[in-house]
Each structure stands twice: as structure tokens, then as C-alpha cells.
Amino acid sequence: MSLDISNLSLVLVTALVFIALWIGYREQLGIDKDIVIGVIRAVIQLTIVGYVLKYIFHLNNILLTLLLILIIIFNAADNARKRSNGIRGAFYISFVAILSSTVVVLGVLVASGAIKMIPSQIIPISGMVASNSMVAIGLCYRNMNAMFRDQRQQVLERLALGADIKNASKGILRETIKTGMSPTIDSAKTVGLVSLPGMMSGLIIAGVDPVNAIKYQIMVTFMMLATTSLGSVIACYMIYRKFYNDRMQLK
């Protein structure tokens, strides 16, 4: 089986974009510009990434690999920060949380021999870990902002009774961490039944025996559970403090 998609095929597939554009136009969604920008960005970004990865895989240099991973984490942290709605220090916290979850997960995968310490394996896996951590942290920020607003009075009551900020925020922390993790738990429950996830599908399309492909998918599922839980816990425990001032008053 050939894994090459010809340029002509790719151009023909562009017709799919026109379906989205047509729906946007017909339903007057006002998203035509966003679709066009999204498509152009996707093509440019992926083309650049394709060539960069090819070059890095060819060089097989550990420092360059680590640098690329750091760039991935930096971008993921910046994206998670945007979901924080202006919480101070959100970038730094996101960076620490995503970096920690990536290091732990990659460490376990490499140590267990599931993946090799080579750029072609480390970099894609880092991207998956960082992006899942990013989504989980973004959800946590949004939920935490909403809960501190909705449960303000309850937090104040706890503080007035002499609770420290951790005790005053405990319910919010618990719910928020759960919110960060729940999409991964839900998708773990339905994986294979509702969707054939990207990695498994990719391997199957590439000609890998489905039975071997599921081994990778099982690894990815475990990896995602670890990464979203670590990312959520670290980010939540660091960020909730930002809702208080140094006199332990709710801002």
C-alpha cells in the first residue's frame, strides 16, 4: 500500500473546505473569514512543521529535539494562558504544569521501553502529551473562574470561619480537577467503541496490523490519563492561590 498522497489528490480534497464555506455562507454564520484563515494557517504551519521534522529526524540531535519539545510546551502554555481570562502568572503555571506532565509521561514511556529516545518518537508523543495537558489546563482555568464567581459567598463563609485558603477552596479545587480530567476519562471509556483515535487510525492506514495498533492506542490512553491528571492537579494547586491576596482575602 502506498502512503503517498499525491498533490493532485490533496488539491481535490480541498473541495471539503468548500463544503464548510458553503454551510457558513448559507447559514450566515459569519465564519467564512475564520475558515479561510484557518485553512491557510493549517497548510502553512503543517508544511513548515513537515520540513522541520524531516530535518530534525535526519540530524537526530538530542539538544535540538529537546529544544523543539520546549517550543511545543511554550506554545501549549501560551494557549492555556489564554483560557485563564487574565489570571496573573497563568503562563508560568501552565508552562510548569505542561512541562512536568510531559517529563513524567515521557520518562515512564522511555524507561518502560514503550518508545525510543529518538526524535521521530519523542517529538510526536511530546506534542500529544502537551496538547492534551493544554486542553485539560484550559478547561480547569475556565471552570475555576466560573466557580470562584458562583461560589464566592461560600468561599467567604469558610474564610470568615478561619479556614486557610486551601480549605476555603477545597470544593472548587476538587470539582475543577475533575473537570480537567473528565474528557480524557470519558474518551477512555468509549475508545474503540465510538471513535478510532488518531494514532490508532494513522497506524492502521499506514498498514500496521490493527492488533499491534491497539497496543499503541492503549499506551496513548494511559499516557493521556496521566498527563491530564498531572497537568490539572499541578495547574489547579498553583493557580487557585491567585484568587486571593496576601491577607488571604478573596480578590
Binding site: L159, A160, L161, G162, A163, D164, R247, M248, Q249
Partner: peptide, 9 residues
């Protein structure tokens, strides 16, 4: 503040 709030409720 924590200890104070336990005394001034």
C-alpha cells in the same frame, strides 16, 4: 489572618 478570624468571627 486565619488565627485572627478564628477569634474574631
Amino acid at each position: 489572618p486565619i488565627l485572627y478570624r478564628r477569634e474574631v468571627s
